[in-house]
Amino acid sequence: MNWFAIGNIADIPLRGARCVKTPQGKIAVFRTAENEVFAIEDHCPHKGGPLSQGIVHAKAVTCPLHNWVISLETGTALGADEGAVKTIALKNDGGALFIALEDLMVAAE
């Protein structure tokens, strides 16, 4: 497991998201109204919609394609829908953000 610097919390708008490109695909990094930060795969379990483009509310995001609501904490779909995306470990060191990627993921390139 390796930590990669991805930037500062201030780079993400409140109740917003940015994405991080990795060889394994995009990772969406969210900042909630309460200043919490979460990272999950940028890929809705339903039809692969880019979750980083959704509306962020409480600790969840609504997918822009078909309005699935995904928990940022657990990656699981909320409400009546079933499915999950992978969550990514994230470290907030005084505003500097790091995400954890497995060695294999990085080396795979």
Binding site: N2, W3, F4, A5, R18, K21, K26, V29, D103, V106
Partner: peptide, 17 residues
């Protein structure tokens, strides 16, 4: 501007910390 750019790009020649 932030809307249209990735926050970071990892793994393309970037070393792990």
């Amino acid at each position: 501007k932030h809307e249209f750019r990735p926050m970071a790009t990892i793994g393309y020649g970037q070393a792990a910390e």
